[in-house]
């Protein structure tokens, strides 16, 4: 049985991470921005799980569970914010926010 080289794992998670960053920078829709944040969080969770497996420790999976809970809390706040956005501006476009300047 051949093992997958560990570098491939890192390259995959780095690709996911960069998809998240570029989505965050390019897209203007707030829902897509939250999706991109989730992608970034989960790509790092993936590295934790793999390296926990590599060292034979449970720590990586503990970190994974913590990341899942924190991501859920963050997104719930984000959705509350999204409702306020829809109430005040009638749109999900964050470019319409340009009051603070200077």
């Amino acid at each position: 049985m051949t093992l997958i080289p560990i570098d491939y794992v890192f390259i995959l998670s780095l690709i996911l991470f960069f998809i998240g960053i570029f989505g965050l920078l390019i897209r203007r829709n707030i829902i897509v921005i939250f999706i991109c944040l989730e992608i970034m969080l989960n790509s790092s969770a993936y590295v934790y799980v793999i390296s926990g497996e590599y060292w034979g420790q449970p720590d990586g999976q503990v970190m994974f569970i913590l990341i899942m809970t924190v991501a859920a809390a963050e997104i719930s706040i984000g959705l509350a914010l999204l409702i306020q956005l829809q109430k005040n501006l009638k749109s999900f476009d964050i470019d319409k926010f340009s009051r603070l300047k200077g």
Partner: peptide, 16 residues
């Protein structure tokens, strides 16, 4: 949140 993701990813690489 983006900064937290950066922190997590960096820590994951150090953990490995």
């Amino acid at each position: 949140s983006m900064a937290s993701c950066f922190l997590l990813f960096g820590m994951a690489l150090l953990y490995f």
